[in-house]
């Protein structure tokens, strides 16, 4: 079990070892976002701007203008909330080569509660033109994404989590922007993103006795939205489910349903945070509380999918 933020810290360090253009920035959360690993080995290429997220993004923009590839990190709520307009106007509008890798996304932040649980960041970043929005499912995908982002010239947002997740994808998995079919089933397809890929995989195990075998697809590139592949996969099924640790408003579910409604209308069921704030608690308890644990997902699939 490894949190995607930990995988990020390790991948950033590796990337820093092979590319001296990589610089890292943080806003006093380097121990949590794991940029501290990079900071320890490359203190001259690490900039802690203190608790000042708006400046964090502006300084990252300036470093990219000077020819570096900055990776800027803080919690997702502060990066995408506090500094949203800095990201929009200073980074995305001129399409600067800035990578925003924000951790502690979703409710699985846990005990810190609603103020620190970002359930809006996918929406906030996706709505900005020129932005690429990525959500890794596990540590293998995170590492692949961090490297992909370095090769790609332009602004990228990578959504990272605090909670440990098991490795789901195979060691030789290489991220690209297409959705990845993890499990081929029938009738039902689940498009999942981030930590929900793991939870849906667990739910599918629980469904075995009921003779229900959904297809499970990892949608880790939210933007550019892989519209054609989504339609293609949906066409092979009767019912579509989407799963995300994010507000059901304007997240993955909304994007999939908007795509299907325009191209191949079919019923879409959302699994996600039902437009409520988070709350304090242990990550696993919170997943159950908000209906995002394996059992809740199983129940939803049975109830709605098999009507």
């Amino acid at each position: 079990m490894k949190a995607t933020r930990e995988a990020y810290g390790e991948a950033l360090l590796e990337l820093g070892r092979s590319n001296d253009k990589v610089v890292a920035l943080d806003a006093d959360l380097s121990k949590s976002t794991k940029t501290s690993l990079f900071a320890k080995e490359f203190p001259e290429r690490f900039f802690n701007v203190g608790i000042a997220e708006q400046n964090l993004i502006g300084v990252a923009a300036g470093l990219s203008l000077a020819g570096f590839v900055p990776y800027a990190s803080t919690f997702a709520i502060f990066a995408t909330g506090r500094a949203w307009e800095q990201i929009r106007n200073t980074v995305a509008y001129p399409s600067l080569n800035v990578k925003i890798c924000a951790s502690h996304a979703g409710i699985t932040v846990g005990e810190d509660g609603a103020s620190h649980q970002s359930i809006e960041d996918i929406a906030l970043m996706s709505v900005i033109p020129n932005m690429t929005v990525l959500v890794p499912a596990d540590s293998i995908e995170t590492k692949s994404m961090v490297n992909w982002a370095y090769q790609y010239n332009g602004p990228v947002y990578i959504r990272l989590g605090r909670m440990g997740v098991p490795d789901i994808l195979s060691e030789n998995y290489n991220f690209d922007t297409k959705p990845f079919v993890l499990k081929k089933g029938k009738r039902i397809v689940i498009f999942a993103t981030g930590i929900m890929l793991w939870k849906c995989l667990e739910a599918i195990e629980l469904l075995k006795p009921y003779n229900v075998e959904p297809t499970l697809v990892n949608v880790s590139c939210i933007k550019p939205f892989p519209e054609e592949s989504i339609i293609e996969i949906a066409k092979e099924h009767e019912i579509v489910f989407t799963a995300e640790e994010h507000n059901v408003i304007n997240g993955l579910g909304s994007m999939i349903s908007s795509t299907l409604s325009r191209n191949y209308p079919m019923k879409v069921y959302f699994i996600g945070i039902d437009d409520r704030f988070g709350t304090s608690g242990k990550p696993n308890d919170l997943l159950s509380y908000y209906g995002l644990d394996a059992n809740s997902i199983k129940e939803k699939l049975l109830l709605l999918g098999l009507k």
Binding site: Q54, G58, V59, A61, G62, A66, G67, T90, Y93
Partner: peptide
């Protein structure tokens, strides 16, 4: 034109980042 500006308050942060980068180089 070195940066896209217009939303006030952001140019000094960009300048700080750029100055850090130039020094690093």
């Amino acid at each position: 034109i070195e940066a896209s500006t217009g939303s006030l308050g952001q140019g000094l942060s960009i300048s700080v980042g750029c100055a850090l980068g130039l020094r690093l180089k």
